[in-house]
Simulated assay, not measured.
Amino acid sequence: MAHHRSRRTPGSTAPALDPARTALLVMDHQPAILAFVPEGEDRNALLGGVEGAVVDVRANGGTIAYVRVGFTGTDWDAIPASNKSFAPLARHRVMHHEAPAAAIHERLAPQDSDIVVRKTRYGGMSTTDLDQQLRERGITTLVVSGISTSGAVLSTVIDAADGDYRLHVLADGVADPDTEVHDVLLHHVFPSRAHIIDTTELRDIARHCGAPVSLPSGRRRSAAIAVDERACVRPTTRGRRTATVRVGRDRRPTRTWQSPRKARRCPLSPAGATGTG
């Protein structure tokens, strides 16, 4: 069975994210569903990318929300014969919620502070309390990963967009057996509802825009870290200018000043932080 993952279009930009209001959705990364992704490099790349995204979002104060599919006997009995996708699963008693095949992959194991929900249809919200849990935590932005692009991801993106969430889809954090459908969704359907990014961009943003800078003695600690010329600054001003601290590869910070009108918000930084570029 064919499998395809894509990277985002170079040069595209996404709006700033506030980690305190952002959740990464990790959907259907379960052995029975991962079986549709070829073993070896493709599966390792998918799992490795999502694993890194989990680490980075969590480290910057974001929320991780896991969604998995699994059924009880009552769930199977409640699926009508008219449901073309799920009636066969009910008939053959597939994906029992306690079966190893329905567990979240061990590389993506949840922590106690994470959200974990169990669904009985494609979407992550339609048969769970995911939306309620997200709103109780003040989440307004979702970063979506999952399998498959045409199943869990499509259904969840549509539901979340209708719920007025700001959405980002990880192009290399989603996968689908049908390459044509996968490409149509990522390039022609999702962009009207979500920003398309990749795990590398998310990782870079998380590393560069969350941690406080350590300045030499006597210097003010008023800026966030900025590595390899990608800078994030907090609104520290002198007259009409804004301070920017850049930390180079030698880890030695240097301060520059510029007009605030050139500043833009830095993705995945706390609200109010800005970046220069």
Rank of each mutant, 00 (worst) to 15 (best):
A224G: 15
L47D: 07
G70D: 04
T141Y: 00
A99M: 07
G146C: 03
L130W: 01
R93T: 13
G48W: 10
R135T: 07
V37Q: 03
T140A: 12
V143R: 00
D176S: 08
T242W: 13
T22Y: 00
K119T: 07
E98F: 08
P177C: 12
I147F: 01
V55C: 08
R5F: 09
S217C: 05
S155Q: 11
L215T: 09
H97E: 15
T141K: 04
A160I: 05
T127G: 15
Y122N: 10
A78R: 09
L34H: 12
W257S: 09
V213L: 15
A231V: 12
F36T: 13
R121W: 08
R255G: 04
A20D: 09
G277M: 12
M95F: 15
P15L: 05
A59T: 03
V50K: 02
V117C: 03
G277F: 15
I139D: 00
M1L: 13
R246L: 15
S217L: 13
V144E: 07
R107Y: 08
L17M: 07
A32S: 15
T22D: 07
G70K: 02
A223V: 06
E41P: 03
W76R: 05
A2L: 13
T244V: 15
E98S: 12
V181N: 04
S214K: 14
V213H: 10
R221W: 09
R166P: 00
R21Y: 00
V144C: 02
P80R: 06
S85P: 01
G123H: 03
L186H: 12
V245I: 11
D112V: 12
A194G: 09
G73T: 10
H29P: 01
V153F: 10
S148D: 04
V94K: 06
V245Q: 05
T128D: 05
L202G: 02
V233G: 04
H29T: 10
T22V: 03
Y165N: 04
E136N: 06
G62L: 01
N83M: 08
S148V: 10
T256Y: 13
A243M: 07
R58L: 12
S85T: 15
P88R: 06
C266H: 10
R241A: 09
R221P: 09
V153E: 01
A226H: 08
D42P: 09
D56M: 11
R137L: 14
S214N: 13
R8I: 02
E106T: 14
L46C: 04
E229I: 04
H195E: 15
R7L: 14
H4V: 05
A78P: 01
A171H: 05
Q111M: 15
V213A: 11
G40C: 07
T199N: 05
D228G: 14
D172W: 07
E136F: 10
H182K: 09
S217N: 05
A171N: 04
R21M: 03
G146T: 05
A101K: 10
Q133A: 13
H105F: 03
L215I: 06
R249A: 15
K84A: 12
P10Y: 14
A223K: 08
S145Y: 01
Y165T: 02
I158K: 05
L167R: 02
H3P: 02
G277D: 08
A20I: 05
G275C: 12
R230S: 11
V55I: 03
A160C: 08
P191L: 05
T236F: 13
R193C: 02
G62E: 03
